[in-house]
């Protein structure tokens, strides 16, 4: 029998704890495959966040450090300064990166820190049970916005990629989605490019991945994918915002 598909060597054999239909698993796979394909897995150090992907240090088959909530970019900075020849990445959710860690992510970009950040935006706090995130859409119901996010009270959701693209040190910024096979392929390309940006010593690279949270959105996995397409993509347009290769 011929092998047609194999689990990436960039992942350990520990089973994921993620909810059924959650797209973290897909994103983990894309990151792991990219590291293997670029031949850098054994020279990679990852930083896990606080949030649903808090246990990412168990899943990626490389050296890992677990950071405090929001501080992964600072931890990654410390590692990268000690090992400038290694590949360092942070994997963060929207509560971690866009809320409590907003300061750290801005400054890691502004220093053009040569790290890669995978930013998973699912418009909600997953691990703590579905509270409002800074990325929660206006009108979206969460356990801390039971009547839907009220713009007058909480403002509009924050667009991280657009914000970071204004910073010179951010050399690669792209927003992708994992709602369809085609979009997953594009996401993989972007993630790989973001690591290449680091390997070439260009500067900071981030890929914002629109992701689903069927459990806390209260939808089936398939309906969650539709919700992402119908509600998130219009507010968070997909595409590249900065690309070191195009001088953009």
């Amino acid at each position: 029998m011929t092998m047609v598909y194999e689990k990436s060597k960039g992942l350990t054999d520990v089973p994921f704890h993620y909810c059924p239909g959650c797209t973290h698993g897909v994103i983990h796979k894309l990151v792991a495959e990219s590291l293997v394909e670029l031949g850098v897995l054994d020279d990679t150090i990852g930083v896990a966040p606080v949030g649903c992907s808090v246990l990412a240090y168990k899943y990626f088959n490389c050296d890992m450090q677990e950071a405090a909530h929001g501080r992964a970019p600072a931890v990654a900075t410390g590692i990268k300064r000690v090992h400038p020849d290694k590949v360092v990445f942070s994997y963060q959710g929207d509560g971690d990166l866009a809320s409590i860690g907003a300061g750290e992510i801005v400054h890691v970009a502004h220093r053009a820190e040569k790290i890669t950040t995978i930013f998973v935006n699912n418009a909600i706090y997953g691990m703590t049970g579905g509270q409002m995130a800074p990325t929660t859409l206006v009108g979206q119901k969460t356990t801390t916005s039971p009547l839907g996010r009220d713009e007058a009270l909480s403002g509009k959701p924050i667009r991280i990629s657009e914000m970071l693209a204004t910073i010179d040190g951010a050399k690669f910024v792209e927003r992708v989605s994992v709602d369809t096979p085609a979009n997953i392929r594009k996401a993989k390309k972007a993630i790989k490019r973001a690591f290449e940006c680091q390997i070439k010593g260009e500067g900071f690279a981030i890929v914002e991945v629109l992701s689903t949270c069927p459990t806390n959105w209260g939808l089936t996995p398939v309906k969650a994918l539709d919700w992402l397409k119908d509600n998130m993509i219009p507010y968070y347009p997909l595409g590249n915002f900065r690309n070191f290769e195009e001088g953009k």
Binding site: A68, R71, V75, T77, G78, R81, V82
Partner: peptide
């Protein structure tokens, strides 16, 4: 947290 990263490394 940078200290944590560097010390950990």
């Amino acid at each position: 947290n940078m200290v944590y990263g560097a010390g950990g490394a």
